[in-house]
């Protein structure tokens, strides 16, 4: 019983898009907070802290996102935590994003000239103002293009959440395609929606990159 691709179907895709955006947003905010913690731990003076977060990053960078989703989704279930699919998926994406953003930001912090840290210390600035006022604003600026690049990856990566039954944009596309028997049309629309989401971000990222390159060349 096929239907034609109409407004109702488009609406369904837009619903999927909403979940995609929401999932990416949760992962990005959660990963932003987690990643900040990870980055600070990676550059801290505590060796155990550096080791643990180093292992965490290695684990999440060294395994496919799909595996991470599976393990966290089913793992939480096995541990008796019956969470709604979207919560489990949000947790998985947040952990994933924390690792990647943490590593990007660690690199940016370490790329700053040593003199910046020294000048802050010589002025008597404590850890919190030293990081908050001096180091992080500069590091995050350097890391902005890479951060945006990761956000784009993350948005596209949310399509993997379909595998555990979460109906985001890609999964919605699959459903509509099965109903309408018009896969080419449906997935063209799905692709266009992803593109409309990711391309402005990519563009913004490369703009900033150019601006930073010009500023440092000065």
């Amino acid at each position: 019983m096929g239907t034609t691709f109409g407004l109702g179907e488009l609406g369904f895709l837009i619903q999927g898009l909403k979940w995609t955006v929401l999932l990416a947003a949760i992962a990005f905010v959660g990963g932003g907070i987690g990643g900040l913690g990870v980055a600070l731990a990676r550059v801290s003076t505590s060796k155990p802290l550096r080791r643990i977060t180093g292992g965490y990053i290695a684990l999440f960078q060294g395994t496919p996102l799909l595996m991470q989703l599976f393990v966290i989704y089913y793992g939480l279930g096995l541990m008796g935590l019956m969470l709604p699919a979207w919560v489990a998926v949000a947790i998985a994406f947040t952990l994933h994003a924390s690792a990647f953003l943490g590593e990007i930001w660690r690199g940016a912090i370490e790329a700053l000239p040593k003199g910046q840290f020294e000048a802050a210390r010589a002025l008597g600035l404590h850890y919190v103002p030293r990081m908050r006022d001096v180091i992080l604003p500069q590091a995050l600026r350097i890391a902005l293009p890479a951060t945006i690049g990761f956000l784009v990856q993350l948005i596209k990566g949310t399509s993997l959440a379909a595998i555990v039954g979460f109906i985001e944009l890609a999964r919605a596309g699959q459903i509509v395609s099965n109903q309408t028997y018009a896969p080419l049309l449906v997935f063209t629309v799905v692709g266009a929606l992803y593109f409309a989401l990711c391309w402005p971000l990519s563009l913004y990222g490369s703009r900033i990159e150019g601006r930073i390159a010009r500023a440092t060349a000065r």
Binding site: P113, G115, A119, A122, G124, V134
Partner: peptide
């Protein structure tokens, strides 16, 4: 540190 000021070769302004 609050009593000692330091000036570096490379300025190290923020």
């Amino acid at each position: 540190r609050s009593e000692v000021g330091m000036v570096f070769q490379n300025f190290n302004l923020f």
